[in-house]
Amino acid sequence: MAKPPPITNRLRELREQHGGISQSALAEAIGVTRQTVIAIELGKYSPSLESAFRIARVFDLGVEDVFGWEA
């Protein structure tokens, strides 16, 4: 099994805070599949910089408010 990337995220928490945006709706908003959103949420896939910005914009936040680097 590949080692998960050391990037953390608050996707699930932010989806719940923003009226329970579904994984499908978020996926559509940023132009990826729902499975990719699930993989990002679970920390199994690190999104591209472009997708990271798109995700942050959906929540009206900065990239660093959504993603972090595991120390």
Binding site: V32, T33, T36, A39, Y45, P47, S48, S51
Partner: peptide, 11 residues
């Protein structure tokens, strides 16, 4: 819908 969607970055 899925069939018509192009592969995303992860795919």
């Amino acid at each position: 819908k899925e069939a018509n969607t192009p592969a995303d970055e992860r795919e």
